[in-house]
Amino acid sequence: MSKPILSSYEKQRRTRNITVLSLLGFLIATVFVISMNTGFMRLSPLEVLQTIGGQGNHQQKLILFDFRLPRIVISLLVGAGFAVSGCILQSLSRNALAEPSTLGITAGAGFAVILFISFFPATTAAPIYVLPLLALLGAGLTAALIYILAFRREGLSQARLVLIGIAVAAGINAYQIVLALRLDPKNYQFVATWMAGKIWGGDWRFVLALLPWIVVLLPFAFYKARVLNVLNLGDQMSTGLGAPVERERLLLLAAAVALAGSCVAVSGGIGFVGLIAPQLARRLVGPRHQVLLPAAALTGGLLLLAADTIGRWIMQPAEVPAGVVVAVIGAPYFLYLLAKSRA
């Protein structure tokens, strides 16, 4: 794929892509500002600006920099992580329904966390650093299981991958419920909100725990965009084009799983972002992964940030988990997409 001469169509597409990406960036900035202003404490935009400028009082600084900002950053990172993970999985499986939660990866990560909570009482102070690692481990094991089950001598069968993923997810979810029922009420409540996808890690330490994964894996995915383009054509075609199909697929799968696992650890079971964000992005910029992946990352970040912001005020002073908001907004939109694609 050497650099092609830009046709007028190419130029047009390029301008369009740049417009879309900057529009997404602009929307994120807008929601960011709104989110900084949203919460129990009423802070005027002016006060927010003053505080950012370093003039706020102790209370205002605490709320903006210690409570709201880390949560916003986490929402953006998690949204982007899930979206890119979903995008990779959709392309690898060539199935529009593939995403971390339909494939059981989210469930696997959650299962590991609940196992830990049920065996080690919440009074231990460790979980803040242990949970992300556990979630990652759970996600990895689940993905490995699905991969092994879906593997056939002639290579990985995409249809099997999705079907087995769904079956494994159902199984793990069942175990999760059994385990959760045995927890005492206080731990159960934590697990329940965790499973519903509440951005509970509203703390800079969670940002630090998540950031390395995102910083390494997102660029890696972007770097592999062309490989994804080729894999997307199907096994025979891509082998014909000289791609080491199985190895690349395994690498990308591992990247998607690590992304999803690390995100689940701080956000809980937020599904749907990984499904919808890539779909939306694909409709906006087309199927070329060089643009699709960044667009999906931005869309995912935007979606989750918006969902978390809405979740914070809609039932004040109670908070609705972002995962629930995403599902409430996402489900009708998804049905609309399905209805349209039939026509």
Binding site: I63, F67, A122, T123, P317
Partner: peptide, 24 residues
């Protein structure tokens, strides 16, 4: 909720149970 607590500007917070302050 953190912001609600902040808004009352307490000078001492007493929490009943360990589980209410878990995970950081």
């Amino acid at each position: 909720p953190l912001e609600a607590v902040t808004s009352f500007a307490p000078d001492l917070i007493i929490v009943d149970s360990e589980s209410a302050v878990q995970n950081g």
